[in-house]
Design a protein around this nucleic acid. Structure first.
Lengths: 348, 348
DNA sequence: CTGTTAGCGCGTTCAC
DNA sequence: GTGAACGCGCTAACAG
């Protein structure tokens, strides 16, 4: 592996000149510049980012810590983040926490060890612990899918309140009255907000909520399946189910299938998280689509700004609009076309 | 940010002792060790991986370069890779080439600059260029989803031949005779192998192939849609379509929908790439499932071995078995159950 | 416009 | 068992 010294010798100049010629910083005569470039090319010289980072205190690495990559939402977010970062000459250091705070912490340590310039955090169990660590380290951070708890830290997420409202309104509008809500982990920001929107729609419609139908749980299919099975035993049965995530919807649908309950004939189903390919292959599940690419792009852009701008200014919160995509599972009468209803109204 | 010097001062020892105490290499009395540990904890000391890497010539970074992350196959692969790497104390540097050789090359440069210990490569347009670069740099590499072209480089992929054969056999068994094959980019290894398997099934069944029904194209939905539309204009019409990827299937289904052709009544459809969530929500598309997690795990494991073992030995080729999941789109008569047919027979 | 020099933070001899 | 000194490869001052 060629070093800057090798290039310098070959070009007959000093290492400092090579550095200037290749990086464009400082002066170098065109003639020398060309000679250096040629020498570098001949030797297949690739500057050592470790040494450079050690000196400049910028690693050109940004961390991305997500709970899951298999979840299409985060896959799309990750791809968008990667695109923005690479456009700015940075690379993405990936971490998958599997929703485990311990793993999350370990990744954070590794990332900090590599002296990441900033980090995008979709926190496992609430942003507190991770964010505190990052804050203490003085590393710019943007929180995805949760609220920012510390000042100077930005946050980006979808309009969960609006999404919850859209789903409830849609089902209420179709005549459903006993609508179960399979929520995610109680206490998590998205769960709280989605439920708030759900409740708001009921209040607006003047329909009372049966509190026994509001079920928090894990963001996970098997748990949702069990909750749904229990739900089906209740009398009177719910006439609709809202799932707080795609995985929860999967579990619910499985339980309904197990019980021989037909969707939407016997019970309507609608969900958060639209899975792009799934709908393409067979448009079945009515869902609120999150703008995953926009979330990733906004978060990455804000982070790069913070990194460039010496991390000043108060924390910003960005809430991006969601849209409802109506399909068969909610029992809507579709004439071959799926309806797409935006949620433009701002959520308080 | 605390450095090793700060820790040394606080513990009243030299930096060399701190290094030994924390890394467990060399000797340090238990008493001193504890004092150093405490000092490090107090200061929130995080060793600088840049400096360490500069010295040790190991960055504990592995590169992962995939064409797409939105494609669930690669999302699963990436997550598996990440899991294996982190278990070995390494981190993943992510790159998304968007199937563009130029971007791929740029990423490779960035990764090499960061002195990655090794790289996992799902090459954009054939592995040649990228692999050559990596080889020249002397960095261990494993190729995913393609054949290895250089010695000393490993390759992992699914049994494409077996998958193509399974899909064709299934449809032939259901009585289809004019089966179109919407393939990916001509010349790419997966495309070639999948088509070979397809043809093998016809040969075994003694059914002639109408060459006009074998259509290479891009690994992409829109292109597949156009190819399918053209296909439908032909007479006699095909009675089945095999798509060489999920995206191609999406395009084909869209075109069939546009033309008012019913699946599977008018035409049967089967595809490569099983999308996990899609099938959970509504089991529609008959598909050959690739063992994405196993691919990622095998590739990452092989890479870590190479990194540990001084990169010796000839290149290994690993081909992992696929399985056929029969669902409605191929017109199979399912009594509520999806069949799962393995392809255990080894592909030559 | 270019060269010399001094670290960035760490791991590692080699004395002691 | 521990410390002093060096250098990994690079860039930022400063001199010339």
């Amino acid at each position: 592996v060629a070093t800057i010294r090798d290039v310098a010798e070959r070009a007959g100049v000093s290492t400092a000149t090579v550095s200037r010629a290749l990086n464009g910083r400082g002066y170098a005569s065109p003639e020398v510049r060309d000679r250096v470039r040629a020498a570098a090319a001949d030797l297949g010289y690739v500057p050592n980012a470790l040494a450079r980072g050690l000196k400049t205190r910028r690693s050109r690495l940004v961390g991305l810590l997500v709970p899951e990559l298999v979840d299409p939402l985060y896959a799309v977010v990750a791809q968008a983040v990667e695109r923005v970062a690479s456009a700015e000459g940075s690379q993405v250091l990936l971490g998958v926490s599997l929703d485990d705070p311990a793993r999350e912490g370990a990744y954070l340590d590794l990332m900090l060890a590599h002296r990441i310039d900033g980090v995008l955090l979709a926190p496992a169990h609430g942003p507190e612990s991770a964010v505190r660590r990052v804050e203490a380290a003085g590393v710019p951070a943007v929180v995805i899918d949760d609220a920012a708890t510390a000042s100077g830290i930005d946050a980006v997420r979808a309009d969960n309140v609006g999404g919850g409202r859209l789903l409830a309104e849609h089902l209420l509008g179709r005549g459903c009255r006993r609508i179960a809500f399979l929520n995610g982990r109680a206490g998590s920001t998205p769960a709280r907000e989605r439920e708030a929107g759900f409740r708001r729609a009921f209040a607006a419609a003047g329909v009372p909520i049966d509190e026994r139908l509001i079920l928090p749980g894990r963001w996970e299919a098997d748990d949702a399946r069990q909750r749904t099975a229990a739900l089906l035993a209740a009398r009177p049965r719910p006439d609709a189910v809202v799932a707080a995530s795609a995985l929860i919807a999967v579990g619910a649908l499985r339980a309904l299938g197990d019980a021989g309950v037909r969707v939407p004939d016997d019970i309507a189903v609608a969900s958060f998280d639209d899975l792009p390919f799934a709908a393409d292959i067979d448009p079945f599940l009515t869902a609120v689509a999150q703008p995953a690419a926009a979330i990733g792009e906004a978060a990455a852009t804000m982070l790069m700004e913070r990194i460039a701008g010496a991390a000043a200014g108060p924390g910003r919160e960005v809430v991006l609009p969601v849209s409802l995509v109506v399909r068969r599972s909610s029992g809507a009468d579709l004439s071959g076309q799926a309806a797409d209803v935006g949620a433009d109204r701002a959520a308080p």
